[in-house]
Write a protein that binds this DNA or RNA. Sequence first.
DNA 1: CTTTGTGAATAATTTCACAGCG
DNA 2: CGCTGTGAAATTATTCACAAAG
Lengths: 237, 237
Amino acid sequence: MPLNRRIPEATVARLPIYQRLLLELVGSGTGTVSSEQLAAMAGVNASKVRKDLSFLGSFGTRGSGYEADFLLSQIDRELGLDHDWPVAIVGIGNLGRALANAPGFTSRGFRVSALFDVAPELVGSRVRGIAIRHLDDFEEEVASDPPAIGVIATPAADAQSVAERMVQAEIRAILNFASRVLAVPPGVLLRDVDLSIELQVISFHLSHRHEAGAPPAGSQLAMGPVLGSLGLAHIER
Amino acid sequence: MPLNRRIPEATVARLPIYQRLLLELVGSGTGTVSSEQLAAMAGVNASKVRKDLSFLGSFGTRGSGYEADFLLSQIDRELGLDHDWPVAIVGIGNLGRALANAPGFTSRGFRVSALFDVAPELVGSRVRGIAIRHLDDFEEEVASDPPAIGVIATPAADAQSVAERMVQAEIRAILNFASRVLAVPPGVLLRDVDLSIELQVISFHLSHRHEAGAPPAGSQLAMGPVLGSLGLAHIER
DNA sequence: CTTTGTGAATAATTTCACAGCG
DNA sequence: CGCTGTGAAATTATTCACAAAG
């Protein structure tokens, strides 16, 4: 068991998929699960599942498979979902509200700790029990319960200034849903999501579907929304 | 100019990024742009940009760069954004509304052609001028203006049945935002987006930031939300 | 007899480095 | 000269195939 301490990025990108599947399986009482089953559910092939899981350690039992709840706990640990990550969301429009309510934002490791907007009619109302604060009070509010992750769901024009205030407030990781390339200093982890990139990838495949009948390579395991960010987004030291 | 007629999937995933950057550049009056500039904005390196663009043809001018508007038109053509793709969105909650209003869903190739929900208080109201119809009328409504792409933004529990109705209605491509693995027949292009996957990837990097100071490989150009889908999602012939 | 874990083989992607064109 | 376009090299990711464990 060599246990490489460097997990390939491609594997990291798939761990959340396995995590979610295992959550469902454990929830519905599954005891053990094979790489074959996981692979079918994830839409990948079984050796990829085994290879991915082998980077975490040897948690399977030959002849029977993986114990679902134990495997889940190992993946959670590897993904850092056994920590508590307070998440602040700025921009409580439709998208911000959707994020605040998304199961993935409110369970297993993540806790929506603060909501901000500038619209007077929003400030003071609550989403899932959390009061929306005015962005003017951002620094003050986050001081008491410093968020680990900042989510930007503002109009594009406001995104950069929000990012700067997040950085100023010592937030080390930013998830950016605004369609705007952001500059952040080295040391800040920035990831951009563009909701429409998948639409364009679909458009590509639709308009090429007649040429050469090969199934699109990314079909089963989709490459998700991607948006370029200024090349500054790495974790320091 | 060999002009490989098979564009790597990794390149296809980046074309929307270049597309969006070029839109901005053209909008702000830029005439020519170098691979170096595009690379800096996209957060990738210059040879990757040149390699990516070379799959579309030789559109650059040595010594000066690429003519922004011409390059944009070539990328649009390659991505199929010169077609008109009617998009039907089912589930007009916060997420559905956010999608209906997203710039990427309403410009360049895409046209939100129909909105569906089951909530009586929503049916009849309009989002960006498009009336929300009751899901019961789905088949009838889409018959008159058949959507090329169906977007599922419903609660997880409803996603599968919506997918089946879309397939029945001859929709060949589905973009699924529900956190639920969907089964679709071969021939239907299915892509899943999970809004929280990036959050988990961030969590991974945050909780590993102390070990070995290497910048996370996916930092500059983020791998986006990904969710496994049942292995059925390919375009036929 | 089943299913994991993993080296080895293959394939895809990225990066390098430079010839060649404007 | 400056910058593209692209083979070749390096790196990363996937798949194969099978020995070993339960």
